[in-house]
Amino acid sequence: MHQRTDREICEEPSAAPLLDAIPRQGRTGRAAAPPPPPVRRACRGLRPLPTPTRTPFTFGYLLVLVATSLFMEYADPATVAAVLRESSTDVAHLGEAPLLVLAASALWVVGGLASPMVFVLALVLNALERRIGGWRTAAVFVLGHVVATLATEIPVGLSVVAGHLPESSLHRLDYGISFGLMASVGALAGLFAPLLRVLLLGGTGVMLALDLVELSNPLADWGHPMALLLGVACWPLLRRAGAVRGAAPSRRAPRGTRPPARVPGPR
């Protein structure tokens, strides 16, 4: 009598359902269960927050702002006042050490950690960096901060030379992150859908228009719309960068997919 081999038994059509009924752990030799739904939901909820791996520029910059804000809060008031004066981007300091004061002035938040601008900055920079990367996000922020500062301070110096403003206008306290933030808001709006873009730019535009009507701080009130328009001017480059970044192939296998299990054959 012919005795069937293991190969003949496995090749029969009736053996396929039996193989499918074998648990995955028994066929692969290891358990690979996906994370439970609550963990996945928690991970999705943390995406708006900056992390050192996904958004290193935003995360690092926020750490610096937290450190300087704590210094403003707890250090000696006379020392804090002296440091802020040396970090001011007024005409006098820009004429002496422009690069130093332009960098130093962006390390301080007006109002410290109690300012809502810190929260807004974290959301905007995090969203922008996730779309276009850290280097481009830093470039947009620096562009708005530097260009808007120079565009508002240079006319002050020219007005003092022409005799339209007193020499005291050359020495004033000017620091903060608002110009860079406005440029980042303008750039981020170009990466949104049309409806969200209109809502973001419309709401920001109304707020800036009200500041111009009050004109309580002329240089800042004029510098904010300039910085916002600088961010809008970056749309063509940032959209192209965002499209390339989104279309880049990933080396990691898609989440939830696993290689097919291999059924061991006869030896």
Results as ranks from 00 to 15, higher is better:
L121C: 03
C43G: 09
L84P: 12
A220M: 10
S216V: 07
G246C: 01
P236G: 11
F57P: 04
C43S: 11
P254D: 10
E86A: 13
L201W: 09
L100V: 10
S115G: 09
R85G: 07
T204E: 10
G95S: 12
L181I: 05
E12K: 10
V232K: 00
M117Q: 12
E214S: 01
Y61H: 15
P266M: 01
P194R: 14
V146N: 06
G190N: 05
P56Q: 12
L191A: 05
A21P: 01
R130S: 12
A32M: 11
V146T: 13
A21M: 07
W108C: 10
L208A: 02
T204V: 13
Y74L: 14
L100A: 13
M226V: 13
G223P: 00
A162R: 06
L94K: 03
G163R: 08
L173S: 06
S115V: 04
L228P: 02
E8N: 08
S178M: 07
L107V: 04
P249M: 03
P266F: 07
L62W: 02
F179D: 08
A162G: 11
R54G: 06
T55C: 11
I9L: 15
A233S: 15
L128F: 02
L238S: 14
R40H: 15
A148H: 02
Y175G: 06
L113S: 00
L94E: 03
F59D: 14
L113Y: 00
V83L: 06
G95Q: 14
L238C: 14
E153R: 12
A127T: 10
A248M: 08
T89A: 15
P249S: 06
L84C: 07
A67N: 08
N126H: 06
A31L: 15
F119H: 07
A78Y: 01
A81H: 08
V156S: 03
G246F: 00
P218Q: 11
L150Q: 00
G133H: 06
L123E: 14
S178W: 06
V156H: 02
T68N: 09
P259T: 07
F192N: 11
V91E: 03
M182L: 07
Y175A: 07
R258L: 15
V213R: 12
P225G: 12
F141R: 04
R30K: 09
T257V: 15
T55N: 08
L228G: 02
T28Q: 02
A42M: 10
V161S: 08
G202E: 05
A193S: 13
G111Q: 11
S69V: 02
Q25S: 00
A67Q: 09
M1H: 14
E96D: 11
L165N: 01
A227R: 03
P37H: 00
S216F: 04
V101R: 04
R239I: 13
L99Q: 11
G203W: 10
H171I: 07
G29K: 09
P13L: 15
L201S: 13
H164N: 06
V91R: 04
G26D: 08
